[in-house]
């Protein structure tokens, strides 16, 4: 978020460098049930982001001292592969990934019926295979689908997307260039059935008017991504029914 570049990010017609309009998100592709060992999994692409999410559990909680006698806890590990960004990323957790893991777990706790599994842990693993801005939202969107794929009871599934500002324009779903040279970034995740906000961050510089516009765009896009999440789950279910029929 340096806010400075000679590059024109939004042209006079309101077109962005990847051909999108200001209020358009990148193409989203989601596939549920892509791994065999995990209890639930999902693969997601949004633009050039490629993300895998896997869920194990409910299972015994390790370390034990984290156990909650009243409900399950959600433990999330967000991790970027060393080759996911242009410079090699040093493997292992850093402060950024620890913070992102924490807020994603907190967002998911709002929808998972954790009270059904006292003392257990539901472990969510998010691996960023390729990063192009918006990975925490992509990871949370994929994780929600993986949780549903694992058959874990949930009140709803969570879609997430970022809005922001670049070249003075409020934009939906910033790509890498817009994120690097833009002036603000607002990742948002909601519970679509109630429109509650479960994840919200912001950095940069925005007036109240710009922020409200960004939020409107992100809310709209979350509802669109929600439909794609549901379609992915329905497709997964359709396939497994066919398999059953063949046997």
């Amino acid at each position: 978020m340096s806010g400075q570049t000679d590059m024109i990010l939004v042209d006079k017609k309101g077109m962005r460098i990847d051909g999108r309009k200001t209020d358009e998100h990148r193409p989203v592709h989601i596939e549920a049930g892509v791994l065999s060992n995990a209890d639930g999994s999902a693969y997601l692409e949004i633009g050039k982001n490629k993300v895998l999410a896997a869920v194990y559990g409910p299972r015994e909680c390790h370390p034990r001292h984290l156990q909650d006698p009243t409900k399950a806890i959600i433990q999330c590990k967000y991790n970027m592969e060393a080759f996911s960004v242009s410079d090699r990323k040093r493997p292992g957790p850093d402060r950024r990934s620890i913070e992102i893991s924490k807020i994603i777990a907190e967002a998911l706790e709002r929808v998972v019926l954790t009270e059904l599994y006292p003392r257990a842990s539901i472990d969510v693993y998010i691996e960023i295979l390729q990063a192009n801005a918006g990975t925490r939202c992509a990871g949370l969107t994929a994780a929600s689908v993986a949780l549903a794929d694992a058959g874990i009871p949930m009140r709803d599934i969570i879609p997430a997307v970022a809005a922001g500002k670049a070249d003075g324009h409020v934009l939906l779903d910033l790509n890498k260039e817009e994120d690097n040279y833009g002036q603000a970034d607002v990742p948002l995740a909601i519970v679509p059935s109630t429109d509650e906000i479960v994840l919200l961050q912001m950095d940069g510089n925005m007036t109240r008017k710009e922020f409200d516009k960004a939020l409107d765009m992100a809310f709209g896009a979350c509802h669109e991504i929600y439909e794609i999440q549901k379609t992915a789950l329905k497709e997964r279910y359709a396939v497994s029914k066919e398999d059953d029929g063949d046997e």
Partner: peptide, 8 residues
């Protein structure tokens, strides 16, 4: 103007 936010 808004410079940073964090929901927790």
């Amino acid at each position: 103007n808004f410079r940073a936010m964090q929901k927790g």
